[in-house]
Amino acid sequence: MALPSYTGPLGRIWHYTFLVICGVVFFILMAPIMVIIPLSFNAEPYFTFSEGMLRLDPDAYSLRWYQDVLGIGEGTGSNRGHEWAFSARNSIIIAIFATLLATTIGTLAAVGLSRPQMPFRRPIMALLISPLIVPIIITAAGMFFFYSKVGLAYSHLGVVLAHAAIGTPFVVITVTATLVGFDETLIRASASLGAQPLRTFFKVILPLITPGIVSGALFAFITSFDEVVLIYFLADADQKTIPIQMWSGLRQQISPSILAVATLLITFSVTLLIAIELLRRRSERLRGMSPQ
């Protein structure tokens, strides 16, 4: 937003004020995340910057909370590291299976929903997206009663199904978005060259919508990976995940190990975010749109 040369002094003042306002908003967005990272290297068991940290004294920084979380290093004396590793394993297993399930059936549904012949498109779409809108506490309460009745509560399978259910809307949304403006003639071209519908799907449609599928899958993954409430209602100690351990840690006595976990999670989300951004650009290139 370069300032045109004819801008008057008042316009100039306003322009810079506006930029400052935007700066403040971006600061509010980013600061809370950024402040946690240096604090996780705090040598003291406090949640604030010690004087040593402000003086950039190397002794005020340490990796003790990371050692604590990862269960390595000397003198932690607790099995907390073991606990976090157990939760991390659970989180990853549950998220992977939930993602696979959500992505498979979500993609199929998105392909169906994008066909112009799809009957009752609007109400079905509304129903399929609703897990995203219905308050999580209601979903959790409903699943708690029903899954207890059918014997799915307190099992990995139950949690995977629950997480897959709230992950599917993301897959449906992202894949239908990639299918917008999909060139139907490609399907006919493929058929006229003798390909069966299944072959057409795997050779023509799938490569084109892969970016959408992968970004939907990443959304589903992070949704499961970050989910607390369903686990809180549907799982017991065997299905403990990282978020539920953070949750109980935050509700009881908070230890700075949580900041170390938080920093690791931030690194993880940055990685995923970059992956998504690259995929988005690739998708737009593939569909012949400009890189913007």
């Binding site: 809370p32 995340i33 953070m246 949580i258 999670l265 989300s269 975010l273």
Partner: peptide
Amino acid sequence: WTSLLVRTTSW
């Protein structure tokens, strides 16, 4: 993209 719990912890 950052965990909801992480952001709440930050606050």
